[in-house]
């Protein structure tokens, strides 16, 4: 398939590798499709929660988690197609103003799992301006390695909520499939909170 060449130079796996190399106890929620494979391939971790469905729900899932765990930083890593289906959720985030919340969109301007059809971002829709418009104080489109370095620093230190749309090449990377059983993923993720007072309500199950 021929993809129109643009001035995009960043590679999605390298972007995710660079960002998550700095992770410590941050919680990561991935949007369905390539972002799930990307995160699984470079930073498989108990603190990852991989969505395999629920398109449009990655930001909302991360928001509920961020509100429940205000002392932990939550990173949502998703794609442009998934984000476009949940644009309204960005407005919902701003109402809550979670300072521990980061959205990272890996924007290849394509629906990668369904034949690389162009998304709205290929036609000039700029997600970071949407985020800015609904009230994210930090919201930028990332094109270069230097911009990515600056954003990576902010992702782990700045006050959220923040939004980064990272323009990446429309590459065809090897699929790296993590665990896909939702119940298993839930239990794996929740195990880290055992012993917290908050999880007592779960203990009643």
């Amino acid at each position: 398939m021929s993809i129109p060449t643009t001035n995009v130079t960043l590679q999605r796996r390298q972007v995710v590798t660079k960002i998550l190399a700095a992770r410590k106890d941050e919680l990561v929620v991935t949007g369905l499709g390539a972002p799930t494979w990307d995160v699984a391939s470079v930073s498989e971790h108990q603190n990852n929660f991989y969505l395999w469905g629920g398109m449009g729900g990655a930001v909302s899932t991360g928001l509920g988690l961020a509100l429940a765990q205000p002392e932990r930083r939550v990173l949502v890593v998703t794609g442009d197609g998934e984000m476009l289906m949940g644009l309204g959720s960005l407005a919902t985030v701003v109402v809550q103003k979670p300072k521990n919340f980061v959205v990272i969109v890996l924007d290849n301007e394509r629906y990668g799992e369904t034949g690389m059809q162009q998304t709205a971002t290929a036609f000039g829709v700029e997600l970071s301006l949407v985020a800015r418009g609904v009230g994210f104080e930090i919201a930028r489109t990332i094109w270069t390695e230097n911009e990515l370095s600056e954003a990576t620093n902010e992702i782990f230190t700045a006050r959220g909520p923040m939004f980064f749309d990272v323009k990446v090449q429309a590459s065809d990377d090897p699929m790296v499939l993590p665990e896909k059983d939702g119940l298993t993923l839930k239990h794996r993720f929740q195990a880290q909170f055992l012993g917290q007072k908050k999880s007592l309500s779960e203990g009643k199950q």
Partner: peptide
């Protein structure tokens, strides 16, 4: 109690899944 106005109900389903992951009922 955190009250979260949504733009669409589907956000709430995802939100409360995330809340439960973090140990909270919604």
């Amino acid at each position: 109690i955190k009250h979260v106005p949504l733009t669409s109900e589907q956000e709430g389903v995802a939100l409360l899944g995330g809340a439960w992951l973090g140990g909270e009922r919604g």
